[in-house]
Design a protein around this nucleic acid. Sequence first.
DNA 1: CATCTGGTTATTTTT
DNA 2: TAACCAGATG
Length: 879
Amino acid sequence: MTEPSKLPSHGVPEHQPLAGGIAARARAAAGPQYLTGLNPEQREAVETLDGPVLVLAGAGTGKTRVLTTRIAHILSQGRARPQEILSVTFTNKAAREMKLRLGHMLGQAVEGMPWLGTFHSIGGRILRINAELVQLKSNFTVLDVDDQVRLLKQLLKAENIDDKRWPARMLAGLIDSWKNRGLSPSQVPAGEAASFGNGKGGKIYATYQERLKILNAADFGDLLLENIRLFRENPDVLRGYQNRFKFILVDEYQDTNVAQYLWLRLLSQAPSRPGVPLSAVIPGAISSAVIPGHAEGVNPESRGKEDSSRDSGSAPTAHPGMTENAASQAPLKNICCVGDDDQSIYGWRGAEVDNILRFDHDFPGAKVIRLERNYRSTGHILAAASHLIAHNEGRLGKTLRTEDVDGEKVTVTGSWDSEEEARAIGEELEELQRAGENLNNVAILVRASFQMREFEDRFVTLGLPYRVIGGPRFYERAEIRDALAYLRTINSPADDLAFERIVNVPKRGLGDATVQMLHDHARKRRIPLFEAARAVVETDELKPKARGSLRELVMQFDRWRAQREVTSHTELAEIVLDESGYTEMWQKDRSADAAGRLDNLKELVRSMEEFENLQGFLEHISLVMDRDGGADEEAVSLMTLHSAKGLEFDNVFLPGWEEGLFPSQRTLDEQGRAGLEEERRLAHVGITRARRRAKIYFATNRRIHGTWSTTIPSRFLDELPAHNVEITESKGGSGWGGSGGYGASRFDDMEAFGSSYSTPGWQRAQANRNRGQARGGSGSGFEERPSSFRGSRSDTSGSRNAASGSSGGFGQAKRGPMVIEGELVAKSTGTVSEFSLEDRVFHQKFGYGHVVKIDGNKLTIAFEKAGEKKVVDSFVERA
DNA sequence: CATCTGGTTATTTTT
DNA sequence: TAACCAGATG
């Protein structure tokens, strides 16, 4: 039989073993044999094929199994062909997992599931097919955050905005959040648009989008937002996809943001007849902004309204067109969303728990199925987690139950400080190891990554093998992105961001000054940086040294591009890394991680083999390149609670349960009650990762930013059910009297913490404990902390004379052929110069002179002081 | 143009 | 405390 037992053991109950031969039977499309291992709810979720279905799948209830089996069911029932099923996940990992499992169930048929993937990869795929409809070319580049920030920095500079006061990073975050909410530049509420950069935020967003088109690039948000625009502006294209996808499946629905929701809504609508106005089909919240987006100005009043109606979420029937359609002839597609509102932990990234809470309003007639049988954890663990999460108000409510034994109680252990905490956990780990436990079954889950350090230090001293999960991903490493930048520049000469990244890496003596002048030239002539470089090396603008190495670089790229025709892409990559001196740069580097970087470069080249060609590789790299799949050696896993979602371990250690750290003070300050609830969900996720043992820790003193401060136990500890929890003493720790009464806090009577009662933090926590829970109030239950000093700079000069400076020369260059956008890239060198022979001109560096020769945009000028020089016309002005 | 130094600022992270 | 970035120096 195929080996279901080798699969990650999600929801396969011991007492309900998978029958052998499932895969064989499914392949033969025989009876619904593959349903046998399912419990009644799972089975219902699999078999309810028609109409919208929401599967509320609690932790460890077998949701992935339901999803994959459902696909198998659809296929074996002949309800759709593989290419007619749209199946979206959030992460590549989840997509891979589903493909793997489907492969086991169906044989090799997965190859025929082209629409199983992440929101972004599927969005990107649709966008490439229809690129020209959104002003892109199908080989567009997907920018990562770093590229985004660098681009925005340039735009901020052009607007004369002080990027100390208004960091590009912040704007990148802002734009991202707008995109997450499905807002194009014209749809951003005026107030928000003005909140950045002295009111220029919205304008820069618009400029940024324009620049992306010129660069033939899209950022992650665009992969969805531009998709939505594509659908809105091209109803026929939308109709095509609506027709194609007979079934839609969505994983982790609680993590979807507004843009993803809108995208799903558009696709899940049954195709409209041609001629029916689009506004009748799409949610009312956005329809009014659809068509006008470009031509007519959008009226800010209505924009505000749209936004609030969407935000309030209390008006599910705010989609009149939709309800009507649903009732008459345009039924909703067979869409099945799987998720768990109690595991929504990405609100800070734009996820809308509301999407899942409102599902049955958004998709009228939806069937809601709850999976509440947990096949992962023991009784005490499940009870502790359930009791904790029950303190949240905004939830759909599920009661997880298990048929497993009660097992060990969840332990809560206090330590004097965080070092002792690490020591205590280290000792317990060694004990487990001695008891024969495999360290792969052990994880330490922290709230914030700075907590990891102490554990790492400790484990190194103990010689305990560990592995850190998460952290910077493979393609985010500098060396990988440098290498990619070379390849991007070869593949797409208009990719200024890539060219700029590597123009002086390795060092070629082409520093800021050179780049700046290339920029000036490129901007004035509206040509890519690379073309600017090509033009500039023909002139005397640069010092001989810089000019020489820039010319060399341009020639190298020409050569590589030519070689591309005759060499395989992997070979080409090796040649490029070699000839550019990039590999050599790291070989010469004496720092400790240089060797690792060289390894990574090798790994990159190796991974290219999986792709047809350079183009295909570049298309996928930014979307599907995961962190390196770690070694299989036995080791303890160390990671954040966030990256632990979806994983499970026999033994889970949960350190750092202290007010301020967990729940995080910052989240509380910024998000108030909603933030607290999300933190609580995070705690719930943490506990439910454990199969057999969950161990919680808190320390009285913790070093934060170098200084020690006294902390108090997390309020979440008080929310654990006494019956399922055992209070233990830290090894070698300061003894304190155990549990006792169930007062304001069971941890109140611990002598060791007596000194902390009077701290403001403690009082605040006490106050919150008493009123916070009961209050329905939003956000402001927590007093304003003096943490927001940042607005207090006295210097408000960010907005000074924006019109002067660079724009003076620019204005002049604006005359002439430059107005015809797009045409100019090709014709740049052929345009007639605006100068004539004998014109008297002025040049920044060379001074006054007169034109003696004109060759396209290149002028030869006899300067009065500097002699005869070749320069590009955009660098001189009429004197 | 590269290197040094001081001032600033500290979550969570996928695509 | 430590890491990162921007401006000042050589």
